[in-house]
């Protein structure tokens, strides 16, 4: 990085180079209860946590190349909470031995002016959806079991339609780059969830067919 032209470094913070390790799977609606039961037994002892979020996916198109994608999320159950802005990089073309998908990740907490601000930056909303479900934790691992719903009238989160008859299951860890032991822990945890759900390393870029 080039040094700033002033005498000292600015009071900037932020965590550079955080990676998201991810495994994904799904269960049919009828299997939800048994999966939740299993997760309650395996995960850290905590109050059951549910959520309902609205996610807007924004694109910034440049003169060339792929558009820049940002995800803005807000809680519908806690409307006063800050918005969550997320950048996800391309999955790493890592070695085959790694058990999880690894991609660069930047999480930013932001004020409620976020949609207006992204518009001013030139971003345009591409699509939106509502997601609701359950969160579990085990150490640094996060397990999210969620139902995705399509927003029928743009911006109206009251009027939604379920996308499928199943729940998305995601196991993720945020860690600095290079901590590949993380994916080992994830694999052994995923093993314990079989045969209720099979969590796999799914490359989203190979799904555009």
């Amino acid at each position: 990085m080039e040094a700033p032209p002033v005498t000292v470094m600015p009071v900037t913070g932020g965590t550079i180079n955080m990676m998201e390790y991810l495994l994904q799977g799904s269960v049919l609606d009828q299997a939800l209860e048994s999966l939740l039961h299993r997760l309650r037994g395996l995960c850290d002892n905590m109050e059951p946590e549910t959520f309902t979020d609205h996610e807007l996916v924004y694109l910034l198109k440049g003169q060339q190349g792929n558009p820049f994608i940002l995800r803005a999320r807000r809680s519908l159950s806690h409307p006063n909470a800050p918005w969550h802005l997320r950048y996800l990089g391309q999955p790493e073309v890592g070695d085959k031995s790694r058990h999880a998908l690894v991609r660069n990740c930047v999480d930013v907490a932001a004020s409620h002016s976020l949609p207006e601000f992204l518009n001013e930056m030139g971003f345009r909303m591409d699509h939106e959806f509502v997601t609701n479900g359950h969160i579990f934790r085990k150490g640094g691992m996060k397990i999210v079991v969620s139902k995705l719903s399509r927003v029928l009238v743009p911006g109206n989160t009251e009027n939604t339609e379920r996308l499928s008859l199943s729940y998305l299951v995601e196991l993720s860890v945020l860690a600095p780059a290079g901590q590949d032991t993380v994916s080992e822990d994830m694999r052994s945890f995923a093993e314990q969830l079989k045969p209720l759900v099979h969590l796999e390393k799914i490359d989203p870029s190979k799904q555009r067919h």
Binding site: T12, G65, F68, D107, V108, A109, A110, S113, E116, E120
Partner: peptide, 20 residues
């Protein structure tokens, strides 16, 4: 225009956005 208050990770995001 509009202004945004964010946490320090916004600086990291601006690095990602450097081509724009």
């Amino acid at each position: 225009g509009p202004c945004l208050i964010a946490d320090a990770n916004f600086d990291v995001l601006m690095v990602k956005l450097k081509s724009h």
